[in-house]
Design a protein around this nucleic acid. Structure first.
Lengths: 304, 304
DNA sequence: CTGCGGCTATGAGGGCGGCTCATGGATCCG
DNA sequence: CGGATCCATGAGCCGCCCTCATAGCCGCAG
C-alpha cells in the first residue's frame, strides 16, 4: 500500500549514474555533488526495496533491477518533456521540441535527409537529432527500448528480434544487388567484400542456392568502406539498395534477378511515444517517402 | 532552455482537480488543504507559462492546455507505477499490481467474470478492478483515453469512433436476437423496448430491410431493465447475445436469420499500457475466452 | 441591502527533504 | 606505504511545500 514517489530529479540521477558508470561522474554531469548522488541513490533503493547498482572500485554498474528502472526512467522523463511541450504549444497541429532518431549508417545518410527536410518544412519548430547506431546487437531498436532515442530506423530480420514492448512498421523492402568495379572483365574472380552489420542472414540462403562461390572474403568496417573498396577495384560486394544510393561512377551495379535477397527496413518506437505529435509527424513523412513500396508488405509488429 | 520539472505530486494534483472539478474537492481527495492545491496549481502554471484551469464559483475547469496536461499527466503517473512494479518484481513473468478495467454493463456481468477468474488463477498477485461505464458518449474508450482505466471493453461501431491515440482489437462479433415473453401468441404486436446505450446504429439498417415495424417503442434505463420488462410480458426487444446470457426462462429467444444485425465487441487500451505485463496477461485471457469467433475478423485499429 | 455559504487567492510561519561540506573507509597501483 | 579514486556517512543549512488563518469574490435568500 506504500505508494512510492520518484521525483524527476531522482530519475535523472538514476539515468546519469547508469550512463556515466559511477556516482562521481554522474554528479559532475548533473552539476551536483557525489554525496548528493550517493544519498539519492540510497534513498531510492530504500523506497523501492531493491538494490539498483553494484558499487565497486570501478564505479557503479546497474543490477538487472537497476537496468529496468533506468530504462523506464528514461521513458518517464521523456514523457514529462512531451507533457510540457504539448501543454505549452497552443494548437494541436503545432509540433515542437526535440525528436531523437536512431538510424543505421546508410539510412541516416540516404533515407533520412529528404524525409527530415520535408519534416522541417512542415514543422519548423521541431528539432530532430539523428544518432548513427550500429545495427548489431540491440541495434537501433535497443536504443529506443532503453529510452535513448524516440524512434529508430531498423532492419527487420530474424537475426535481431525486435523487443516485444515496442511498436513499429515496415517502411520498405529493398533488394540486394551486386556491385563491382566498372568495366571489370570478370567480377566473379574478385574477392567478396563484407562488413560487420551485414549479418548475411539475408544473403546466406541466397548464396546457398548459387552455383558459384567467391574466391575470397574480405571484411570491412562499414558499408561505406565496402563501397569505396569496390570502387577502387579491390573486390565486389552484395549490398542493399540504401547503401548503394550515390555509389560512385567507377562502380557498376547489376541486379541479381528474381530470386535476389531482400531486406525489410522500417521504424520502431515505444508505445507511449507513438502517440506523440512529433513522432506521428515523422512517421507520416517516412511513410509518404517510402510510398513506392507496395503496401502489400505485411507489418511485422502487432498492435498489442 | 528552462527545463521544467513536474513532481509526481504535482501531476496528482492536476489530475485530481480535473476529475473533482475544483480545488477544494481535489484537496479532500488528496487528503490535503485547498490552499496547498491552489499554491501548487499556481506554481505549475507559472512553470509552464500556461493557464491550466478556469476558476470560478463553480470550481475549476481545465482549459484546452490543461486538459492536455492532465491526460499526459495521468499517463506519466501510470508509467511511474509500472516502473516501480517492474523494478521490484524479480522475474518478468511475475505479474502483480492493480489493473483497472472499464466495461459496459453486459460485458462486466457476463463476459468478464470467467475471464477474470482464469486471470486470477494464473496471476494471483494481480488485483483487477472493474468499473461499469455507460457505453454512450466517450464510453469505455473515453475512460481509457482519460487515464481512468487501463483497459476498456468497448463496442466498435460507427456511432462512437475510437480516439486515434488508442490501440485495441476486436474480440468477438455477436448477433442480435429477438427476445420476447415465452409462449406469447403474437410477439410482433408487442411494443419494442429499447435502451439508451443501444444506439441502434447496429440495428437501424436491419430494421430498414424488414417488412414490418413495431407498433410502439418504449425506452428503458439499461439492458437489464429491458430484459426484465420483456420477461414481464411488457414488450419485445432486439438485444445482443451478451445481454441475453442468463435471460430468465420466462423469455424466449429467436434467431433473426442470416441477415441479422451484429455488433463487434473488443478491447481498447493506450499504447503505453499495451506493453504492460498486466494488460498483456488480461488481453491474452480475453482472446482465449473469445476464441470461438473466427479470427478472420480484421482488427479495426492500427499499430501506430 | 445585507448576511451567509460556496468557491479561490494570498501571506506568514514551520517542518522536512535534499543539498553541501567534510571526513572516513575500501581498494588498487606504483 | 603513500596516493589516487572510488563510494559511504554524518552534521548542518536552505528552500520548498505544506498548514493555518484570512481576505476577496460572487450568487442567493430573506
Amino acid at each position: 500500500m506504500s505508494t512510492v514517489d520518484l521525483a524527476p530529479q531522482e530519475l535523472r540521477i538514476l539515468v546519469a549514474v547508469a550512463e556515466e558508470g559511477g556516482f562521481s561522474a554522474a554528479a559532475v554531469r548533473l552539476g551536483t555533488t557525489q554525496s548528493a548522488v550517493s544519498h539519492a541513490v540510497r534513498g531510492i533503493e530504500r523506497k523501492l526495496g531493491v538494490v539498483l547498482f553494484e558499487r565497486g572500485r570501478f564505479g557503479a554498474r546497474p543490477t538487472p533491477a537497476g537496468a529496468r528502472a533506468v530504462s523506464h526512467g528514461r521513458r518517464v522523463l521523456r514523457m514529462l518533456e512531451v507533457l510540457v511541450a504539448e501543454t505549452r504549444s497552443g494548437s494541436p497541429g503545432e509540433v515542437a521540441g526535440p525528436l531523437r532518431i536512431a538510424a543505421f549508417r546508410s539510412a541516416a545518410l540516404h533515407l533520412l535527409p529528404p524525409v527530415l527536410e520535408r519534416l522541417a518544412a512542415r514543422h519548423p519548430a521541431l528539432e530532430p537529432t539523428v544518432t548513427v547506431v550500429r545495427e548489431v546487437g540491440p541495434g537501433t531498436a535497443g536504443a529506443v527500448a532503453e529510452g535513448r532515442a524516440d524512434l529508430g530506423i531498423a532492419t527487420f530480420g530474424t537475426s535481431t528480434p525486435v523487443p516485444p514492448e515496442l511498436v513499429g512498421d515496415v517502411l520498405l523492402e529493398e533488394p540486394y544487388s551486386l556491385v563491382h568495379p566498372a568495366g571489370h572483365p570478370d567480377p566473379r574472380s574478385l574477392p567478396l567484400v563484407d562488413w560487420m552489420e551485414n549479418c548475411s542472414s539475408y544473403t546466406r540462403t541466397w548464396w546457398a542456392a548459387q552455383d558459384w562461390i567467391p574466391t575470397a572474403t574480405v571484411r570491412a568496417e562499414d558499408d561505406g568502406a565496402v563501397l569505396s573498396m569496390v570502387s577502387s577495384g579491390l573486390g565486389m560486394a552484395i549490398m542493399p539498395a540504401l547503401s548503394l544510393t550515390g555509389a560512385p561512377l567507377s562502380t557498376e551495379i547489376t541486379d541479381l534477378g528474381p530470386d535476389r535477397p531482400t531486406r525489410r527496413v522500417g521504424y520502431v518506437t515505444t508505445p507511449e511515444l507513438a502517440a506523440t505529435a512529433a513522432v506521428r509527424a515523422l512517421v507520416r513523412e517516412l511513410r509518404a517517402h517510402a510510398k513506392p513500396t507496395p503496401d502489400s508488405v505485411k507489418p511485422q509488429l502487432r498492435a498489442v
